[in-house]
Design a protein around this nucleic acid. Structure first.
Lengths: 207, 207
DNA sequence: GCCACTCTCCCTCTTAAGATAGAGATTCCG
DNA sequence: CGGAATCTCTATCTTAAGAGGGAGAGTGGC
């Protein structure tokens, strides 16, 4: 057993950082060694402190959680990362876990669960609550969107017309329609508006 | 000067409650007397403790922030309520402030600002950061949607067709179109999808 | 080389969406 | 009582959206 679990926190809300820090530092077996307020800082502080566990928020300024996960695992493939966020869309969960995050939990989790997750991840054991795991499994089997389709989806979600989308992406309106049609099929939606609703719920886009 | 500012917290995230509690209890002049995890509890605890300040999250289970503000001000018209949330849509801000909340700030605010806001509100002085105040002013002049239009908007946002909306609301498709048209005009949108994007950004709907 | 995937473009056809204009019924307020 | 607002419904017309096809060019892997 390790004498001390060294933790780095990354969250753009000072209140949340304070809360986590207070919780962690009350425990005899763990300690917060650094706090980051954005993605860039999170990466810098990981490199400097090489903590046992990194607790990461998904949506942060400068660089978002998924990108941070990627970069940190490049630096240290054995890094233990615990995602802690409000987003429960299956796409977010799937992305983080398949990229190599060791745990994923929601901010409304009770104290005990949060601390248990940090301990589990620090010992290299994956931690995922049952509801989160269920979502990740939901995502399996569902078709992925291509990068181009995600580009189009983003513009659809902003309320752009097919013609407008075509202009922005320098393609013809017909092609834009082809992409939209593919999106509707993959998301199992009847209309573009429903597609936006589904995509938002699943975490494919963030309005 | 008061000997003690007594604070009640209401937020559905234990982490946030811990963070706020830690910050507040470190101050010599204030103290957390109770914490609530949902809207119902918030109202109950307000009545029981009659705190000097109530810090409220907007989105909570059972009863949302706006409803809590309303109810608490019914109980005590002089209640000092500080909204603390991640939602920066002008509609949310406008609703809370016009209903009588004394302050509104965002969760990414620095510690100093949060504490300053609590002190201000406790002395019955309104506190609103400049960016938030600007949003509230933006909302002025913009036309309000009627209740029926909000009903329709909600269904539009879920991806329903006009025909579907008509069926659900027991009206004709023509009437549904009339409502949608009114929504587009009021939100200054060209299509229903853009209307959803605008409505979401302004906080008229919460997907 | 061949297969799978992606992105691009084209066609036709049907239907939903939106613009425009008008109007009756209700409630609520000054 | 006379407006004002809201909700309801009507009709016509134009255009955007979506369904259903097919197909060529490029990429990358097996």
């Amino acid at each position: 057993m390790k004498s001390h679990i060294r933790v780095v926190l990354a969250d753009d809300h000072p209140v949340v950082r304070d809360g986590l820090a207070a919780m962690v530092n009350q425990q005899a077996d763990m300690e917060v060694v650094a706090e980051a307020g954005d993605g860039e800082e999170a990466i810098t502080l990981y490199e400097r402190h090489r903590p046992d566990v990194m607790v990461l928020d998904l949506r942060m300024p400068k660089r978002d959680g998924v990108a941070v996960v990627q970069r940190v695992l490049e630096i240290n493939p054995k890094a233990c990362i615990l995602i802690m966020t409000t987003y429960d869309g299956d796409e977010d969960i799937f992305q983080c876990l398949s990229q190599g995050a060791k745990g994923y939990l929601l901010k409304d989790a009770p104290r005990q669960e949060i601390l248990a997750a940090i301990r589990a991840v620090s010992e290299d054991r994956p931690y995922t609550s049952s509801t989160v795991a269920a979502k990740a499994l939901q995502r399996m089997g569902k078709p992925s969107l291509t990068q181009r389709e995600l580009d189009v989806l983003q513009l659809v979600a902003e309320g752009r017309s097919n013609k407008d989308i075509a202009r922005r992406l320098s393609i013809t309106e017909g092609t834009a329609k082809t992409h939209v049609k593919a999106i509707l099929t993959k998301l199992d939606a009847i209309s573009r508006t429903e597609a936006v609703a589904v995509a938002h719920k699943r975490g494919l886009i963030h309005l």
